[in-house]
């Protein structure tokens, strides 16, 4: 009796071992042959770049820095997708295991980490239907006193503006309530966008080329401090017709128009954006609407909001 028990045990063990060996020799090799190792993990650090990964033909265009990791599988059926959904590729294989009726569908999921990018988006609005100015929460405004109203009226958070500031004194003067120079206010900050506005206080300079040359240095200093930010040069806002006729400190709309052409060219040369003075603030002949500013220069609260709405529509 005992001997027969031992014999049965040995036969059972042998059968299990045999089955295992045949499985490993037949099924597993077939399954493995239908897959390939993961292919490229790509990373782009540049703005406005286009990238292709050919094995699955994923093609995307990024506007901001993004990371895309794709775990690809080459199956008998090549797949093509431009979406970011997970897809599943089924590769069926049959194997002759210890039973011909058994099939092993192999499902290798294709994992695609969603691409991080910022598509053009609709601007957020307040319940009253106005553009929600919190869209500027990660945007900085740097420049002369024409930006001061944004800070004074609590319309924007990150405003670094000083009365009389120019492309030289941005390196030496500080904002009200601060002992940090305006340019160094950008140190350690992670703004998405930075809008610069200079030129009003340089209208009276004898050589406009020097203004452009020094503006270029300001741009470089901004890039050094916040390398990932999109930088925009805002054109000088025209002044009212009456103020233009006064020609205080050389500020008149003809000079402003000429300077704006140079600023626009500078932006193009530097590969950064240019924001033209919004037409919603101007009369038909290109002057600042007189009711926009009591002194023909510095916008009141109502028109400061309109200005910000126009900027938002321009850069987002």
């Amino acid at each position: 009796m005992k001997k027969s028990k031992y014999l049965l045990m040995i036969c059972g063990i042998a059968a299990v071992i045999t089955a295992g060996v045949s499985f490993s020799k037949t099924v597993l090799p077939n399954a493995i042959s239908e897959t390939s190792t993961p292919s490229a993990v790509s990373e782009s650090a540049d703005n406005h770049s286009t990238e292709k990964i050919t094995s699955t033909k994923v093609e995307h265009t990024k506007k901001k820095q993004s990371t895309t990791a794709v775990l690809n599988t080459e199956t008998t059926t090549e797949s093509q997708s431009t979406t970011h959904e997970n897809t599943t590729h089924a590769a069926e294989t049959t194997t002759k295991s210890f039973s011909d009726t058994i099939t092993f569908p192999i499902q290798i999921p294709t994992l695609r980490i969603p691409e991080i990018f910022t598509p053009s988006r609709e601007l957020p609005t307040t319940p009253s239907g106005e553009i929600d100015l919190s869209c500027f929460d990660n945007c900085a405004f740097v420049g002369n006193s024409r930006f001061i109203s944004f800070k004074n009226y609590g319309l924007a958070k990150n405003v670094y503006s000083v009365v009389g500031l120019n492309v030289d004194t941005v390196f030496t003067k500080s904002c009200s309530g601060s002992n940090i120079t305006v340019i160094n206010e950008l140190n350690g900050k992670n703004f998405d966008k930075i809008i610069l506005m200079f030129g009003d206080n340089e209208c009276g300079w004898p050589n406009q080329n020097i203004f452009i040359e020094r503006y270029s240095k300001v741009i470089k200093a901004v890039k050094d401090r916040v390398p990932r930010a999109e930088i925009f040069l805002h054109g000088i806002l025209p002044v009212s017709s009456a103020e233009s006729e006064e020609n205080n400190y050389g500020v008149n709309n003809s000079t402003i128009a000429a300077l704006n052409q140079k600023i626009k060219q500078l932006a193009a040369d530097e590969g950064i954006g240019y924001i033209a003075p919004p037409s919603s603030l101007l009369t038909e002949n290109g002057a600042l609407i007189s009711e926009a500013a009591s002194d023909g220069v510095h916008l009141n609260k109502s028109y400061s909001k309109k200005w910000l709405f126009a900027i938002a529509e321009d850069i987002y």
Binding site: K151, N152, Y153, G154, S176, G177, S178, D295
Partner: peptide, 16 residues
């Protein structure tokens, strides 16, 4: 000029 009432946060920011 006509003054506008702003926020307490703006006051703290302007005055540091």
């Amino acid at each position: 000029e006509s003054l506008e009432k702003s926020t307490a946060e703006a006051a703290y920011s302007i005055y540091g």
